[in-house]
Design a protein around this nucleic acid. Structure first.
Length: 553
RNA sequence: UGAGGGAUAGUUUAACGGCAGAACAACGGACUCUGACUCCGUGAGUCGUGGUUCGAAUCCACGUCCCUCAGCCA
């Protein structure tokens, strides 16, 4: 019941794998990987990739690796490595001991580079970064060969070894593949394989003074690990030619790169740079702010791995650029939460109701099941009732609109699981604001059903004033006011939604006193809520994960 | 404007020469001690123009529009 699955529909990648299995291209092996660079936190877009790669391995009886693409020590940190592992694990992707780092292969990569030099397929270039750019040409004009392109093998070898030994200054030389300066694929115009960086690496320390570039490291790492289908995003389509060139030039085990469209979601931005700005400039309270679509943010907000998996299954995979409606994500998580959460009562914006004919000092309790949606579950708890209760401010209208079937003067409604009440009076303050309601109840309707079977228009939730416990409730709206945060402004932060967070003082039923961070509930008629880690003894804090669908209002 | 990719309901996708289907969203109804859930129903689509074919979203040609590439980032 907690596992809500949508059957994974076919997609172009599965079609490719099916064909490969038919032709025996990889001996019917399927081996995928998720290759994050440890320079930031994972977000919902990464979840798409993780679920895709892991799901493929799982469904085809294959293997899934987690591999850190740690080729740039200037940007990468151990802190991110730890956080990423935690998030991948939480999402449910199991790498079963196959945790690797591109840095594990630095020595092998170095040996292969020497092989390419010996084969006349790589050379040390003394040009500066600016000069290399000038020689590269443009989209419409071919590049020019570097004057160092025809260096003898022995000299290349000597220079490359000394680069490794740390003899040269950063930027003074690079190792380049010797391909074709006139190629229409700019990535093939003698791409850089190694740059000199006198920076300590989180894993290899000071062992290296040269570091491989992405293009040089990635395909070879795939080959070493026996990856069959190396899935990445669309912007690497041109790089595939280089990916193939390196594996062919080396004569090593082949793997194939397949590109898919990255996730774009309404009301969000996905670029690392922009995510970092949101955090660094304090527009949100950290990477795990529940308004963020980072894995940590979603987790804190109350999203579940199953809900996220639902979502990634629903959106599918293709090569067309797209913008997914946030409503899909919300639907996916509601579906999961609906199945798994206990139903409790919490009043988000309380309005007191005094039941005048209920004896002062009297109290009673109603035993109410937690899981009305799941007949296999029988847990329940007592909910206390007394003369004064709080109901939702929204559940009363002094002059009810047409079609409104909640409480109003002279109108009878059911207090869920308790009694029928009729509103008999409205108390206002000097400013005319309603501060309290008077009502009478029907003792014969105990439990929420009247012997005469008369119907009431509505059923509303409540808490006993005397027994309810206060809770801070954080209500969220999208972080941006526009579905496309870039729309109509120079800088996306101008589209930040000033009302993305609203904090209210709520009252919840006493059974919630023992709730601990991470616990999830449906506050009946209000939405799904999750206990926030800010909770301390005596101070309950809830996040509203997502509201219920509402066909009224 | 060199090269590489892409275009199917409002959104995301399926269909691989043979009935254009689903989910989300919208709308209507049934049910209901959650205006939820569930169920039923409605509207809504092949970028354009030609061609091949008994038959085209699918194959071909020519267009249009969108995305990517000129980091010693990934």
């Amino acid at each position: 019941m907690t596992e809500t699955t949508t059957p994974t529909s076919s997609n172009f990648i599965r079609t490719i794998i099916d064909e490969d299995n038919e032709t025996g291209k990889y001996d019917r092996r399927v081996h995928t990987r998720f290759p994050p660079e440890p320079n930031g936190y994972l977000h919902i877009g990464h979840a798409k990739s993780i679920n895709l790669n892991y799901g493929l391995a799982r469904d085809y009886g294959g293997l899934f690796n987690l591999r850190f693409d740690d080729t740039n020590p200037e940007k990468e940190e151990q802190e991110y490595i730890d956080a990423i592992m935690e998030d991948v694990r939480w999402l449910g992707a199991e790498w079963d001991g196959r945790l690797y780092h591109a840095s594990d292969y630095f020595e092998q990569l170095y040996q292969w580079a020497e092989q390419l030099i010996n084969d006349g397929k790589a050379y040390v270039d003394d040009l500066s970064a600016d000069e290399i750019r000038e020689h590269r040409g443009t989209l419409t004009e071919p590049g020019r060969n570097s004057p160092w392109r025809e260096r003898p093998v022995a000299e290349n070898l000597d220079l490359f070894r000394r680069m490794r030994a740390g003899e040269f200054a950063e930027g003074s030389r690079v190792l380049r593949a010797k391909i074709d300066m006139a190629s229409s694929f700019i990535v093939l115009r003698d791409p850089v394989m190694y740059r000199i960086l006198h920076a300590p690496h989180p894993r290899t320390g000071n062992a290296w003074h040269i570091y491989p570039t992405y293009d040089w490291a990635h395909g070879q790492s795939d080959s070493i690990e026996g990856i069959t289908h190396s899935i990445c995003t669309l912007e690497f389509e041109n790089n595939r030619r280089l990916y193939d060139w390196f594996q062919e030039a080396l004569g090593i085990r082949r793997s194939q790169q397949i590109e898919f469209a990255r996730l774009n979601l309404t009301y969000t931005v996905m670029s690392k740079r922009k995510l970092i700005r949101l955090v660094k400039e304090g527009h949100v309270n950290g990477w795990d702010d529940p308004r963020m679509w980072t894995i940590r943010g979603l987790r804190r907000r109350g999203y579940t791995p199953e809900g996220i998996r639902n979502f990634t299954d629903m959106i599918g995979v293709s090569k067309a650029n797209s913008l997914v409606d946030m409503a899909l994500l919300e639907h996916a998580v509601r579906e999961d939460l609906n199945a798994r959460t206990p139903r409790v009562m919490g009043v988000v914006e309380p309005l007191k109701v005094v039941i005048e004919n209920y004896p002062k000092g009297q109290e009673e309790a109603f035993e109410v099941p937690y899981y009305k949606q799941d007949k296999s579950r029988t847990e329940s708890r007592p909910i206390p009732f007394s003369r004064e209760v709080y109901i939702e401010r929204d559940d009363f209208m002094e002059e009810p609109a047409k079609g409104y079937n909640r409480l109003a003067p002279e109108v009878e409604v059911r207090l869920m699981n308790a009694y029928y009440i009729v509103c008999t009076g409205v108390v206002k303050d000097a400013a005319g604001r309603i501060v309290e309601l008077r009502a009478v109840y029907d003792p014969a309707s105990r439990g929420g059903q009247s012997p005469d079977n008369r119907k009431v228009k509505g059923t509303i939730h409540w808490v006993s004033a005397e027994h309810a416990i206060p809770a801070e409730v954080r209500l969220y709206e999208p972080l941006f006011a526009k579905a496309n945060p870039e729309e109509g402004v120079d800088d996306f932060v101008e589209n930040l939604n000033p009302d993305s967070l609203r904090v209210v003082d709520a009252l919840v039923e006493p059974s919630l006193a023992t709730a601990v961070p991470g616990d999830k509930f449906q506050f009946v008629r209000e939405g799904y809520f999750c206990v926030d880690p800010d909770t301390e003894p005596g101070r309950l804090v809830f996040n509203r994960t997502v509201g219920l669908k509402d066909t009224w209002r």
